[in-house]
């Protein structure tokens, strides 16, 4: 097993993330225009949905990333609870708002897509409902994290919550399937990798967009974690400065 404690050192993390961050951001900056060009201009319109199918290239990767973010958050929280790994808490905390935003993007684009294709902004079908509940799980995590005066306690309480939530996500998914046995939303069409039911001309833009989303996620996560570490450093430096200043103020009074 990889020795996780090697990465627990914030200095080592800063060095490593400093190396990864430029690459991840460059990939994100390059793939977004390419992916958007392929998706919005250089891909065929759907024979039934016409141009509205292009929403898919924004919507589907957002849904993937939302689930991926929640999984990462649960994994990071588990690492934090088991090995008391401070960076893992920080990672989970940094993922939460990003994941919530992906979920929101998924919901909003899904709603915009639903209006022209299904004729309604919102339906209570299995997938929409479970993504909506996923959004509430993200929000609950963030609120619980902030509800404690002691941030380490908040981190651990929220970590327990996200692990419980992770166990329940499949149950929620399954139960909303029961809610709507007949649903408007189409089933998964890309996961069957051997023979995906999306045509190649649409699959490529989708995959490029997914890569762009992933690179964006990694860069944003690293920036958030790095700035949190730096903020903690600035804080401790200020404390030291204040301590020194107060000592200097006290010393001359003594004879």
């Amino acid at each position: 097993m990889v020795n996780l404690h090697r990465f627990a050192n914030p200095n080592r993390f800063m060095r490593l993330s400093g190396l990864i961050l430029p690459w991840a951001s460059v990939v994100a900056v390059l793939t977004f225009p390419v992916g958007l060009y392929l998706a919005l201009i250089n891909s065929p319109p759907d024979y039934e949905q016409r141009e509205t199918v292009r929403i898919m290239y924004i919507h589907v990767p957002a849904a993937w990333m939302a689930l991926f973010s929640y999984t990462c958050m649960a994994a990071a929280s588990a690492v934090a609870l088991i090995w008391r790994h401070p960076l893992a808490d920080l990672a989970a905390k940094s993922i939460a708002p990003v994941g919530a935003c992906f979920t929101l993007i998924c919901l909003v684009t899904g709603s915009l897509w639903g209006q022209p294709t299904w004729g309604t902004w919102w339906v209570w079908d299995a997938r929409l409902t479970s993504v909506l509940i996923l959004f509430f799980l993200f929000v609950g995590y963030m609120v619980l994290f902030d509800a404690f005066d002691d941030p380490t306690k908040g981190a651990r309480a929220a970590g327990i919550l996200v692990i419980v939530g992770f166990v329940f996500v499949p149950i929620i998914k399954f139960s909303v399937d029961i809610l709507e046995l007949r649903t408007l939303h189409q089933g998964a069409s890309v996961s069957k990798l051997s023979a995906p039911s999306v045509h190649e001309s649409m699959l490529w833009p989708l995959l490029v967009m997914a890569l762009a989303y992933a690179a964006y996620f990694i860069s944003l996560l690293l920036v958030r974690m790095r700035s949190a570490i730096l903020a903690a450093r600035v804080r401790s430096l200020r404390m030291m400065q204040a301590q020194r200043a107060s000592r200097a103020a006290i010393v001359p009074e003594r004879p």
Binding site: T129, I133, L144, L161, F168, I172, F174, S175
Partner: peptide, 26 residues
């Protein structure tokens, strides 16, 4: 999870209700 938190009541519902949706649906 909210015993040590600053605000209890509403927070508990916010955390628990999403997890209880399967019970409601079933």
């Amino acid at each position: 999870l909210t015993v040590g938190a600053r605000r209890g009541g509403v927070l508990v519902s916010l955390l628990v209700l999403p997890l209880l949706t399967p019970v409601l649906i079933l």
